[in-house]
């Protein structure tokens, strides 16, 4: 989104880099940090740590910083975790030449899931202090769930025997079920359905692979549709502005809205949907659009076409025997 400030701000990049990871005073391996993905993978420290310190540096164009109409520039690193409602700022020390350095601290009781690290460059502009003149071009994510430092993450999946579970037993014959009410969505896969796990995880024959691919696409499209609806209910309008719900709800909407409404911006599309919902309009058209978006997310067209082709190949192979 393009924004405009009422005073000059830094035009060059503000590069935020995580340099070093120290868990309870012990330096951790550098490979937990990915500069390309801007992710720090913290799964390894899960459950047995008190305090994590991440050494960060922020670099701006020193020439621009010196030449601009501002004075007393400072820089803070900002750690936020929406789930624990943490928003801490850490003052970084100037290291000269447009660089600031310092540590951010994550404390165990204050972190859950993942937190975001940002950087703000602040200065006096036109006699007013504390004015924002730059933010990190790319924010970082410190992810307590991530085993490898990549942005790539999927929804949680759990194999469960539905017949043994007091709350799932009424769905005991369902091969899968999504819990979209939990703090994070969980896809339950029913391990009491014979062969399901084998096909999904260890398909070997061409026939099994055909079934696996179509089934996976089917599971995924149902999951997306159901997550979309949950996310929509979590959204709201306030003062005529649409309120993004944050968290995984927002992630789902951001992924799917462009396919729900190809010709509207995501915000506009969401506003439209929330309005329809609050006005209690029938959702016939919407369900069709959601289904389309879910189909796209689950790559169903490819899976179906591929399966049909494989079937044809298998059939002709049989004939030629």
């Amino acid at each position: 989104m393009k924004t405009l400030f009422p005073y000059p701000v830094l035009s060059g990049e503000v590069v935020l880099v995580a340099d070093r990871l120290v868990v309870d005073n012990i330096p951790r391996q550098w490979k937990a940090i990915s500069e390309r993905e801007h992710v720090i993978a913290l799964h390894e420290v899960k459950g047995r740590w008190k305090e994590i310190r991440i050494k960060v540096s922020v670099t701006v164009d020193a020439g621009e910083l010196a030449a601009g109409p501002w004075s007393a520039p400072t820089c803070v690193a900002v750690v936020r975790n929406p789930r624990t409602r943490i928003r801490h700022t850490f003052t970084l020390a100037p290291a000269g030449n447009g660089v600031w350095e310092g540590d951010v601290e994550l404390r165990r009781g204050e972190q859950l899931g993942a937190c975001e690290i940002d950087a703000w460059v602040v200065a006096d502009v036109g006699g007013e202090s504390g004015r924002l003149i730059g933010t990190a071009s790319e924010r970082w994510r410190a992810d307590f769930e991530a085993r490898t430092p990549t942005q790539q993450r999927s929804i949680k999946m759990v194999w469960k025997n539905f017949t043994d579970d007091i709350d799932l037993t009424e769905f005991r014959d369902d091969p899968w079920l999504l819990d979209a009410q939990a703090d994070d969505p969980v896809l339950y896969l029913n391990s009491s359905v014979e062969g399901l796990r084998g096909v999904l995880e260890n398909a070997t024959t061409p026939e099994q692979k055909v079934v696996r691919d179509v089934m996976a696409a089917q599971i995924a499209s149902e999951t997306w549709a159901s997550m979309f609806n949950a996310a929509l209910y979590a959204s709201d309008m306030e003062d005529g502005e649409v309120q993004w719900p944050g968290g995984w709800h927002e992630d789902v909407l951001k992924r799917m809205l462009p396919d729900v409404f190809a010709d509207r911006s995501p915000s506009e599309g969401l506003a439209e949907l929330v309005e329809r919902r609050t006005e209690g309009q029938s959702g016939g058209d919407l369900q069709r659009r959601v289904m389309h978006a879910a189909t796209f997310q689950s790559r169903k067209p490819k899976a179906v076409a591929g399966a049909l082709k494989s079937l044809a190949r298998m059939a002709s192979a049989k004939e030629s025997v």
């Binding site: 942005q151 790539q152 993450r153 999927s154 999946m157 696409a217 995924a220 992630d251 992924r255 997310q297």
Partner: peptide, 18 residues
């Protein structure tokens, strides 16, 4: 990684921002 669900689904259920 076995606990994280079938590989084939992981790719279809990605939540990271596209």
């Amino acid at each position: 990684q076995g606990d994280e669900g079938p590989e084939v689904l992981k790719e279809l259920l990605r939540l990271d921002p596209p």
